[in-house]
């Protein structure tokens, strides 16, 4: 990483916003403006924190005025706290390679041709996402099935519930290596062990949410089904399941986020070759803080996208079921 990287910092941003009343009306009429203000505030704090956080490093100059010291703090090779633009650059370089030096900076920055190398964060993100999704599917299904069984069989609630809760009190960092090693000795490697760790984490909120959702119908609704002599099957599909859907989506949002955590944790003990977890691990091996942060940002973006996808599915379902619940 070179020191010439431009600083797309606070001042440039606020300058862009001074474009008159109509622009501010557009920005602050909706959510965009407030979000931008928070982002700008976080960035400003972040840049300001870089100097005190990195001041103790041997590569930092001990003399010079504040501007020089800050410039040094924002461009360290292995900082304690990397500056945001260093992370941005790392994301760019990891996906499309180094910037060609014969072009102006910004056009070079955005003329990005994705290169599928083992260093590419998109490649790692996809690896993690695929096991996240498989684990989410397995965990979601398991969670729903458990909830259905618990709601329909009183004895299961008493016998299963304590175990379900106990399962989540075991630290996943302790369970993950066991799962990986045991499955590895059975010849199962790659995506599946990671997905199982994801499923282990994400079935729990689905079970809890769906038990609540499936028992949410009012006693009057259940009495009504009884007066129709409705079967358990009919009561389930016509009453319990639709009543539980809002609860299902609320828990699925939690589930997909922790499913991603599970996949990343599952990538750590393998000494993994691929995945965001692997990037975090190699970054910490070699003290590459910028790489760690870049993987972190990628994971956060992935989680946000996944949760947004569930939210979209929820909106479509709610619209199909009458629009207001």
């Amino acid at each position: 990483m070179t020191t010439e990287a431009a600083l797309p910092s606070g001042p440039a941003r606020s300058g862009a916003r001074g474009g008159g009343r109509t622009v501010s009306a557009v920005l602050f009429g909706g959510r965009t403006g407030p979000v931008l203000v928070i982002v700008a505030a976080i960035l400003a704090l972040w840049y300001a924190a870089c100097l005190p956080m990195n001041a103790g490093l041997p590569s930092m100059p001990t003399e010079g005025d504040l501007a020089t010291r800050y410039q040094a703090a924002w461009a360290l090779e292995r900082p304690v706290l990397p500056s945001p633009h260093q992370i941005l650059m790392e994301l760019r370089v990891s996906t499309c390679g180094r910037l060609p030096s014969d072009q102006p900076f910004w056009s070079a920055f955005f003329s990005c041709e994705i290169r599928w190398t083992p260093r590419n964060l998109l490649f790692h993100a996809w690896t993690t996402l695929s096991s996240t999704l498989v684990g989410f599917l397995m965990g979601g299904l398991l969670g729903i099935v458990l909830a259905v069984l618990i709601v329909h069989m009183k004895t299961l609630e008493k016998s299963l519930m304590p175990w379900i809760i106990a399962s989540q009190t075991v630290p996943i960092l302790a369970v993950a290596p066991i799962v990986i090693v045991v499955l590895g000795s059975l010849g199962i490697t790659g995506l599946l062990p990671k997905s199982i760790i994801s499923a282990y984490l994400c079935f729990f909120p689905v079970t809890i949410g769906m038990v609540k959702g499936l028992t949410s119908p009012h006693p009057i609704d259940l009495d009504l089904m009884r007066t129709y002599d409705a079967s358990v099957w009919a009561t389930f599909w016509k009453l319990r399941w639709p009543a539980a859907l809002p609860f299902l989506f609320a828990s699925l949002k939690v589930a997909i986020a922790i499913s991603l955590v599970g996949a990343i944790v599952g990538e750590l003990p393998t000494g993994a070759q691929a995945g965001l977890g692997a990037r975090l691990l190699t970054g910490s091996y070699y003290g590459q803080t910028v790489q760690i942060w870049a993987a972190l940002i990628a994971a956060a973006a992935l989680a946000a996208l996944a949760v947004a996808a569930v939210g979209l599915a929820e909106r479509i379902t709610v619209a199909a079921l009458g629009g207001r619940r």
Binding site: D221, L224, P242, L245, R325
Partner: peptide
């Protein structure tokens, strides 16, 4: 019933 008990969906 006392309440309409219509299914909102």
């Amino acid at each position: 019933f006392q309440a309409p008990g219509l299914f909102p969906w």
